[in-house]
């Protein structure tokens, strides 16, 4: 199931996203939280230290919209780009905003 959360700055979207993700994780579901912000705060809201947050690698666009060069598997994508958080939610930093409108 893919759940999108959208809202203008200041609405509390990121706080709410983190709480929703945690709520699913508490039910024992495998949760992937995808932050599409170039200034990612979601990881921090999921309990990741700021230092680690800054090191979360950005998923290359070729894997977000295509199949890459065929050497990476779906599980490999999560292993390589997903970062586990203390709240059991795996975070993926998908895209810089500067890339978001491209293509």
């Amino acid at each position: 199931m893919k759940l999108g959360v959208v809202g203008k700055g200041g609405t509390g979207k990121t706080t709410l996203s983190a709480l929703l993700a945690k709520s699913y994780a508490e039910q024992g579901r495998r949760v992937l939280a995808v932050d599409t912000d170039s200034n990612p705060n979601l990881a921090q809201n999921l309990g990741l230290d700021l230092g680690v947050t800054d090191e979360v690698p950005v998923l290359p666009r070729s894997l977000a919209v295509g199949l890459g060069d065929g050497t990476v598997t779906p599980a490999g994508l999560i292993a390589e780009y997903g970062v586990p958080t203390p709240s059991e939610v795996t975070i993926l930093h998908a895209m810089r905003v500067s890339q978001a409108g491209a293509g």
Partner: peptide, 19 residues
């Protein structure tokens, strides 16, 4: 590949749609 990872590796995928 991201779509496949979402389908195979997660029960719930939450996308914070900042953009």
């Amino acid at each position: 590949l991201l779509g496949a990872a979402i389908e195979e590796e997660a029960d719930v995928t939450l996308v914070d749609m900042e953009a």
